[in-house]
Simulated assay, not measured.
Amino acid sequence: MTTAPVAHRPTWWGLIPFAAAVTVAALLGVLGVSGTSAEYQTLEQPSWAPPSWLFGPVWTILYAMIAVAGWLVWRRTGWNRALSVYALQLALNAIWTPIFFGAGQYGLALLDIAMLWLLIGTTIALFRPISRTAAWLLVPYWAWVSFATALNAAIWSAN
């Protein structure tokens, strides 16, 4: 009995665990952290800081793209080193909000997001030879985290 090539993994069913993983990351980021919008408003912020209502829609789109990117790589290779790095960056993503808002540790949150930024770049580099589409799907995420890193640094400095 032979097994089907990895590239023929079931198309849509495989997306479910990736959607679940990013949903868990998002929920871990907000569970137990209430009033983040109100807290964000009370922080000393740079003039270029976006309004708090923008974060939800942006992250919803980014999380969908993150899930699809992981799924595209998994469809081609199964679980591999690239997806392990992907999982690690998702874990760092999940803990940023509790560190920043829940604990009010802006410096530690900056360290977390800087490591997240590096791991997203690494994930993109590892995904590129497997699926250019997957790699490109992570570029807006990397750009947003770049912006968020600068915002985190400015807030840490001002508060």
Results as ranks from 00 to 15, higher is better:
2 T>A: 13
2 T>S: 14
2 T>R: 12
3 T>D: 14
3 T>C: 03
4 A>C: 00
5 P>T: 10
11 T>V: 14
11 T>M: 12
11 T>C: 11
12 W>K: 03
14 G>R: 04
16 I>K: 10
19 A>D: 06
19 A>K: 05
22 V>G: 00
22 V>Q: 01
24 V>N: 06
31 L>F: 14
34 S>V: 12
37 S>L: 03
38 A>D: 15
38 A>L: 12
39 E>I: 09
40 Y>R: 11
42 T>Y: 00
43 L>T: 03
44 E>T: 15
46 P>T: 02
49 A>G: 09
49 A>S: 15
50 P>H: 07
54 L>G: 09
60 T>A: 15
62 L>V: 02
63 Y>P: 09
63 Y>L: 14
64 A>R: 03
65 M>T: 11
66 I>T: 04
66 I>Y: 00
67 A>D: 01
67 A>K: 08
68 V>Q: 10
71 W>P: 02
71 W>E: 00
72 L>Q: 10
73 V>W: 01
78 G>T: 03
80 N>F: 04
81 R>V: 11
82 A>F: 08
85 V>H: 05
85 V>T: 10
87 A>C: 07
93 N>K: 05
94 A>Y: 01
95 I>Q: 00
96 W>G: 05
97 T>Y: 04
97 T>Q: 02
100 F>P: 01
103 A>K: 09
103 A>N: 07
106 Y>M: 14
108 L>W: 14
115 M>T: 15
117 W>I: 06
119 L>A: 06
122 T>N: 03
123 T>C: 13
130 I>L: 15
131 S>A: 09
133 T>D: 08
135 A>W: 08
136 W>V: 04
136 W>A: 10
146 S>E: 03
148 A>L: 12
148 A>G: 10
151 L>K: 12
152 N>R: 03
152 N>D: 13
152 N>I: 06
154 A>C: 03
154 A>R: 07
155 I>Y: 01
157 S>R: 14
